[in-house]
Design a protein around this nucleic acid. Structure first.
Lengths: 191, 191
DNA sequence: CTGTAATGAATGACCGTTCATTCATAAGCC
DNA sequence: GGCTTATGAATGAACGGTCATTCATTACAG
């Protein structure tokens, strides 16, 4: 196995174990075992477990951005762009349950809170695709006049909630249902 | 300290520690210390830590129901009842940050998943205030024709999301903003 | 042969839980 | 009331287990 492969194997093992069992019950010993490496090898690629966990989150985030921007047109009408990006996110979540579960675990943990805090209070510029979208919608007065963070919550709250319900098997999402849900999100944001 | 006081002190200490530090980093040793009892005493009142955690959740749930039903009228128009119950929930959350954080932690953990699963697949009748509300709304055709679980997600997803943002200090909710948010939720559910 | 990568047993810290012991109070007796 | 005995709630040191991390040793590539 090459050097890059080992790093990837460790990240993949972490993704799987954290998604399946949570941060606790994803001990380094198991991560190493599933990754096909020795426990000590993890520390050749990552400073410590915290770094491993944060690195994996950043890589997943980049993966989402790439997936969601596929087929996206900056020139399309606002509503269409909203539906594309939000629907794309929901689609990514339900077709990548491991990634979704990991991100949820991360979000709902001291790791994620510190991370979000840094982001919100850190800088104002270049806040990501979705931030850009909502800023435009506010400027064009096509969505409600609410603080940016509230717009985020109104859009992402339901999306992650239905994704969780789908992945846990409480509901069975199909294309029609996804469309209805994303449009319901739009209804709550549109002016 | 009386017997009931001790039980209460243990529950309160658990609430505070789990809310502040999460389930990990809320060890029995700390719970005992903050509750003003010895570690072993916990096991006189609760079978084990799991039972303590589940019991606390059930008590918080009852507390929420009581708070939310205050001033509620079964006879009011549907929209008004929706706004009362959902707004009441959001109000409870932001005025009881410890309780909110605990419930979030619980929800996003193996405890909560097992719990929800039991509830959803368990019985159909007596599913709680909110379930009753959504069933009525569907029957009266005042809200969208979506699976019950999706309605839950569309309503509670944004609410818990904004509550978290408020409690973490990312936004500052006031009465006006709360009204706007709850009405935005209504917009996403109304037919 | 030399230097780097990989190993996995060992380490120390901390977890939930137990249980022998303590001790304030209650009960029984005169 | 006084004295003795019984009770069981409370205690906290101790236990077995698991964790993240280290490091002396081994394997391997150039």
């Amino acid at each position: 196995m090459s050097k890059e492969d080992k790093r990837e194997a460790i990240l993949q093992a972490t993704l799987e174990l954290v998604a399946e069992h949570g941060f606790h019950d994803a001990p380094c010993s198991l991560i190493a075992e599933r990754g096909g490496v020795a426990a000590g090898t993890i520390y050749r690629y990552f400073e410590n477990k915290d770094m491993l966990i944060n690195t994996l989150f950043l890589e997943l985030e980049a993966k989402i951005n790439a997936a969601v921007l596929d087929g996206y047109s900056e020139q399309a009408p606002f509503r269409e762009r909203f539906l594309h990006l939000i629907g794309g996110l929901l689609n990514f979540f339900i077709t990548s349950p491991l990634e979704f579960k990991y991100i949820e675990q991360f979000h709902n943990s001291p790791y994620g809170v510190a991370f979000r805090s840094d982001r919100i209070f850190g800088q104002a510029e270049d806040c990501g695709i979705y931030c850009e979208l909502f800023k435009q919608g506010t400027a064009q007065q096509v969505i409600k006049d609410l603080p940016l963070a509230v717009l985020f919550d109104l859009a992402f709250g339901p999306i992650s909630s239905v994704a969780r319900s789908h992945i846990l098997g409480f509901i069975q999402l199909d294309d029609k249902l996804i469309t209805q849900i994303v449009e319901a999100c739009w209804d709550s944001l549109k002016r």
